[in-house]
């Protein structure tokens, strides 16, 4: 597979390390009343879709950026690649 890195262009998937569902960037609030329940869901309950999947890849043999890759799990077609940091910042609740 080839991952189209936002800065470095097309790179072989062998340069990356896979982590999993991109929802892992949405870490729950530790002070919530139901924090234990939220963390349990965050860590253990994930979707395993046959089709579009947003997932985390780490460019370990490259610039060490964490990427969110949108991949079709049926065809491996990659339709979008973003910096996880950008996504995380954009999804932050506005202060």
């Amino acid at each position: 597979m080839i991952i189209n890195h936002p800065l470095l262009g097309p790179r072989d998937a062998a340069e990356f390390v896979y982590k999993g569902d991109a929802s892992l960037i949405n870490r729950p609030n530790w002070q919530a009343d139901d924090a234990a329940e939220l963390f349990h869901e965050y860590l253990y309950l994930r979707d395993n879709p046959a089709g579009q999947h947003r997932e985390l890849w780490y460019h370990e043999q490259g610039d060490r950026s964490w990427l969110i890759v949108t991949r079709n799990t049926l065809t491996h077609e990659i339709s979008n690649v973003e910096f996880a940091r950008d996504v995380a910042l954009a999804e932050r609740p506005k202060k």
Binding site: V17, R27, L56, Y58, E60, W66, F83, R85, A88
Partner: peptide
């Protein structure tokens, strides 16, 4: 060494990007 660094980069970029 490798997995801790990877984990810390994850924390830095994905959990606490600010």
């Amino acid at each position: 060494a490798v997995s801790v660094f990877r984990h810390m980069e994850f924390c830095r970029q994905c959990l606490w990007p600010e």
